[in-house]
Design a binder for these strands. Structure first.
Lengths: 235, 235
DNA sequence: GCCGGAATTTGATCCGGATCAATCGAGGCC
DNA sequence: GGCCTCGATTGATCCGGATCAAATTCCGGC
């Protein structure tokens, strides 16, 4: 069942400046909106995409958050990305038409779905949409490559600082309080995302707290000196 | 100056099964070929793409090899990828229209160039080309994400083994000897690519040699027991 | 072939983060 | 509220790979 309080089309969606229609004309947005399906609300832990499944659509987080994750052949979980409202997931499926990782809700989640067939047909006639999909893929690629060099060249605290600052920046773009927020993911998820152990994440957070750069109360984080955090990356 | 011995169009190129035309129809390949420009031979060390430069084309390695690399803010070099014949470079520029890393020839290099404007115009009318560009981006994304989890979850020897096995596989696809080849990149480049130091790369190679899995003579590598190398990844 | 500089190998030591282990705290459920 | 379980913090130790430091090999130029 659809909640009646939510917007009915991309054009009036609060996320339109951030989401797929970001660079589309009014006309293109209207046409795209006709192809978008709205999913019902999912519970925390629900699996929206399954690794190995045929790619049949793009998924966009509408509210809540999710993680893109999978398991290595030794059974260890890894977390490729966290997805906030307005972010598109499942792009890696373009490689061979199958998804390679799961998309799992971290909290109650609403989402939109764009069937692949309709997207491809729309890309034929909407040059703006073509460019936008290429832009999204390019951004994800750039992000993944940047993260890869970060994992191999930046130490534990630097990576955690980078994570917090990046999260803050993404919240800000969504008009959510960027300096005081709740982490929807566990320390373990953060660790798996940054290539660390949960103990190291916890200790690094502790170090930031001792330095007076953050306040930490369970999953609630307040950034007191974001500049100090960002400075960890410079070196 | 163009060598007279090289093919003149994508359709007759030895790389056509691997390169951009891989999944295009004969007609689409012919049309694409009309948009492709052939660059002159570059010397080792030449820079084909510069970080920060406006993205004005896609580049494809025709012969030789290259590295996609850049420098972190602390001056350390990183290597995102090595590019073999038939591989497309510069895709990350789709993110915002600018390249974020350099493309540097590792040995004398020939390349093709597809101007972005022409590519976009062709994508309007050639659905196969649209799909192919999306596929390429999806593959690069998948590869970058896979590498990222590998850097954070696999130890030094496992990563080096993975690198050698992957290289072998890519050479095989190009009908080049997959078990006995010359590394066009330095130990330092390999290290920067795998998130290691050159000493660790050298020591790991030494360990493989001692185990009788490879023969190493300077930059020449012979894989004696590729299965043993691949097995390092399983665990 | 010989020479010089760079790349590579090999050796010794050190350290950041993993691992193992115990305690503490928070939120859900009755 | 009180219990119970899972998540998070804190502590102690260990180890893989980084770092520092030669020694050796490779390769291009003469």
């Amino acid at each position: 069942m659809e909640s009646t309080s939510t917007e009915l089309s991309c054009g009036s969606c609060a996320l339109s400046r951030i989401c797929l229609p970001a660079h589309l004309s009014a006309r293109e947005t209207r046409i795209l909106a006709g192809a978008v399906e709205r999913g019902r609300e999912l519970q925390s832990g629900a699996r929206l995409i399954r690794a190995g499944a045929r790619m049949d659509a793009l998924y966009v987080v509408r509210s809540g958050s999710a993680k893109s994750c999978g398991v290595m052949n030794d059974g260890e979980e890894y977390v490729r990305a966290f997805n906030l409202p307005g972010e598109v997931a499942g792009l890696e499926g373009f490689a061979d038409g199958h998804h390679t990782c799961d998309l799992v809700a971290l909290e109650p989640l609403r989402y939109c779905r764009i069937p692949l067939g309709r997207l491809e047909r729309l890309m034929e006639t909407l040059p703006g949409l073509r460019r936008e999909v290429l832009r999204l893929l390019g951004q994800s690629l750039e992000e993944a490559q940047r993260m890869r060099t970060e994992v191999s060249m930046v130490d534990a605290r630097g990576r955690l600082a980078s994570f917090l600052v990046d999260l803050s920046r993404r919240l800000e773009r969504r008009n959510l309080p960027p300096m005081h927020f709740r982490l929807s993911m566990s320390r373990r998820d953060i660790a798996r995302h940054l290539g660390l152990t949960l103990e190291t994440v916890s200790r690094s957070l502790g170090a930031f707290r001792s330095a007076g750069w953050v306040e930490v109360r369970a999953r609630y984080i307040k950034l007191l000196q974001p500049k100090a955090l960002a400075a960890l990356l410079a070196h």
